[in-house]
């Protein structure tokens, strides 16, 4: 389903149907999925649709740019060590409309459950999108319309054993890649203290031959101060 499509189009896969058809002189976009249906009029003569995975933060609504993945089992990392783990994240599918080399998001759909959580306390904390993931030592199988895989390179710069129970990501730095069999991101998690770590994304696919996604926050051309996230309210 991911990729470019010429208008008009009609595609159906994994319980999601997307169509753009001419109706009474204008174009009508329709999307039906388990979460509901969307209908929009498009005032254009033609163009293309780009469907690709986007940052998993648009659904249920854009409330926060932070994404917290809780590990189902905590990870202990030895002092001054570097290790790779794999975790999963929910895939959100962005539908972009393209015309005259400009893109804008038309719709976003997900087949996954959504949940929010609080990182830190109510007065100083952050609202984050929440996901519970198992921790894997090798790239796990994941259905690309449902879940993606994050390769997390953990670097413990401290001289103590550190227990890691979660990772918090900043959506502004997400670099998403997709292929026919998986959606992926790569990130470095640098532990700088017992309760202090820094996460930033790597702009590279998990395997060769994957396509780079057009991210929602990139399209919005927002000026951001940092793409990193500093976890300072607990690991």
């Amino acid at each position: 389903m991911f990729g470019f499509y010429e208008i008009p189009l009609n595609i159906e896969k994994n319980g999601i149907s997307i169509s753009v058809e001419g109706e009474g002189g204008s174009l009508v976009y329709r999307r039906e999925s388990p979460e509901g249906s969307v209908k929009k009029n498009i005032l254009a003569k033609g163009g293309k649709l780009l469907i690709n995975p986007v940052e998993p933060l648009i659904k249920p609504e854009e409330l926060t740019p932070y994404f917290l993945v809780e590990f189902s089992k905590s990870v202990m990392i030895e002092p001054k060590a570097e290790s790779k783990i794999y975790i999963k994240f929910p895939v959100e599918i962005g539908v972009f409309i393209a015309g005259e080399r400009h893109y804008d998001i038309l719709d976003c759909v997900t087949l996954m459950k959504q949940k929010l959580t609080l990182y830190g306390d109510a007065s100083n904390g952050l609202i984050c999108k929440y996901w519970l993931s198992d921790v894997y030592n090798s790239i796990p199988q994941a259905e690309p319309f449902h879940e993606g895989v994050i390769e997390l390179n953990i670097i413990n710069t401290t001289s103590r054993w550190i227990e890691l129970t979660k990772a918090v990501f900043n959506a502004y730095g997400m670099k998403i890649y997709y292929g026919t069999d998986r959606v992926s991101m790569r990130a470095n998690l640098r532990i700088l203290g017992e309760n202090f770590a820094e996460i930033d994304f790597i702009d590279a696919p998990i395997k060769s031959g994957m396509e780079k996604s057009l991210e929602h926050y990139t399209v919005r051309r927002m000026s951001v101060l940092t793409t990193k996230f500093v976890m300072e309210m607990g690991l």
């Binding site: 659904k59 249920p60 409330l63 459950k113 959504q114 949940k115 929010l116 959580t117 609080l118 109510a122 609202i127 929440y130």
Partner: peptide, 11 residues
């Protein structure tokens, strides 16, 4: 509550 996205997981 678990099924409501805006009801926080934590607290």
């Amino acid at each position: 509550i678990e099924e409501e996205p805006l009801a926080l997981k934590n607290p």
